[in-house]
Computed example of a mutant assay.
Amino acid sequence: MNRVAVVILNWNGCSFLEQFLPSVVENTPTDIADVIVADNGSTDNSLAYLKDRFPSIKTICFDKNYGFTGGYNRAIETLTHEYTILLNSDVETPKGWLEPLYEQMEKNPHVGACMPKMLAYADKHSFEYAGASGGFLDRYGYPFCRGRILSTTEIDSEQYNDPIPVFWASGACLMVRTSLYKKLGGLDSDFFAHMEEIDFCWRLQHAGYKVMVYPQSHVFHVGGGTLPNNNPHKMYLNFRNSLLMLVKNLPAKTLLTTLFVRMVLDGAAGVAFLIQGKWGFFVAVLKAHRDFYRMLSKFLAKRKEVGKSKPSGFYKKSIVFSHLVKGKKTYSLLDPSKFTA
């Protein structure tokens, strides 16, 4: 058996499988990795396509859609490979994409998870929103990337080609030690989708492991394949899950003040949506806060690993203030001393 499992989670994504699975199969070395498709109860032609075009690929079938978190947890629970790569179905993998990740994980046992540099499929010279060249988190739970801050993405001119520790690695292409994934309980299924990889990487760092980006490897990501970026439900999940993640992982001494400021910022965003006539987004913010309170007690009970180690890549300032008020539009303009090492 190979040491790496490349697991593609699919839900009614036959068009993505047709477009991108051939590149994964062609450019994934067969002496290192097995390509596996985990199907989340698809009702389109996905399974028929796999059976017809890629009959040798292992397919794990579920009876319904368990979301990003539940689907991967159920699939990875069955694996015995040393490493697992969670790979979105809308990712193009060029030749040589896997080898650098595998080699670095073999050399660095203190690294629990890693990611490649992520470029946009639609503009292959630009960083992709969901991961760019490594993810970070500000003090109020807003994620950003080396190559993307808020909605500003940079052109890739190899300015971020050095491998560094980061706060989080994108779930669009996330390599992890399989045994560690299982030990930590995998992705939190209460998230369903969005922010779950950030929560996982935070827990991984609580456990004493590093998260790295290795830009020697790169992939191209479409992004928004299941829910586009302008979808109110996606905003609902992001707002709700951000608050839940803070409750689950922040030290007690900063939790209440951080939550208060974050909820004020959320409220300001909601008012802005209302003024702009974006009723669906305004309602999404309200629902996110409502459901946060409904789930609060459950997440308070999950605070088992808090404070066991200091996470890398935590930005001690507000990225919203730095970006919108101080005009720091790119990662390179941020003060390195404001990040935890």
Score class of each variant (00 low, 15 high):
232 P>M: 09
27 N>M: 04
170 S>Q: 04
12 N>E: 05
251 P>Q: 09
227 L>P: 00
149 I>E: 03
191 F>N: 00
225 G>L: 04
49 Y>P: 00
49 Y>I: 13
235 M>V: 11
53 R>Q: 15
188 D>Q: 06
123 D>K: 09
257 T>A: 14
297 S>V: 02
184 L>N: 01
262 R>G: 02
121 Y>T: 01
325 V>L: 15
63 D>C: 07
15 S>T: 13
176 V>D: 02
227 L>E: 03
112 G>C: 07
32 I>S: 05
106 E>A: 03
105 M>G: 09
280 G>F: 14
252 A>W: 07
322 S>C: 06
178 T>A: 02
184 L>W: 03
1 M>V: 05
330 T>Q: 08
43 T>A: 09
279 W>S: 07
85 I>A: 13
255 L>T: 08
337 S>M: 03
163 P>N: 11
315 Y>V: 10
57 I>N: 07
192 F>E: 08
29 P>Y: 15
157 S>P: 14
246 L>H: 10
64 K>L: 03
321 F>C: 06
156 D>L: 14
177 R>Q: 07
149 I>C: 10
43 T>Y: 06
124 K>P: 14
95 K>Y: 15
228 P>K: 07
262 R>H: 11
96 G>V: 06
78 T>N: 03
22 P>F: 08
172 A>C: 06
285 V>Y: 10
59 T>G: 12
158 E>V: 12
16 F>L: 14
143 P>L: 14
191 F>P: 00
260 F>C: 09
48 A>C: 07
11 W>M: 13
317 K>P: 00
183 K>Q: 14
67 G>F: 04
302 K>Y: 14
299 F>C: 02
126 S>M: 15
292 F>A: 00
202 W>V: 00
10 N>F: 03
169 A>E: 03
194 H>R: 11
203 R>L: 08
327 G>H: 04
38 A>I: 12
82 E>K: 15
231 N>G: 00
273 F>C: 06
36 I>F: 07
215 P>D: 03
24 V>F: 13
61 C>Y: 06
309 S>E: 11
179 S>D: 15
88 N>L: 12
241 N>V: 08
59 T>Y: 11
135 G>V: 11
186 G>A: 01
271 V>N: 03
334 L>F: 00
140 Y>K: 11
277 G>L: 06
117 K>M: 07
14 C>R: 09
341 A>S: 12
15 S>M: 10
62 F>R: 11
265 L>I: 07
277 G>M: 05
56 S>P: 00
43 T>G: 08
226 T>K: 08
9 L>P: 01
126 S>F: 08
73 N>G: 00
2 N>H: 09
22 P>I: 01
28 T>R: 10
82 E>V: 01
246 L>Q: 12
73 N>A: 02
147 G>I: 10
216 Q>R: 10
245 M>V: 02
225 G>A: 04
163 P>D: 11
336 P>I: 07
14 C>D: 09
126 S>P: 10
66 Y>V: 13
200 F>R: 02
180 L>I: 10
39 D>N: 05
60 I>S: 06
49 Y>A: 15
18 E>K: 15
300 L>Q: 10
191 F>W: 08
168 W>Q: 05
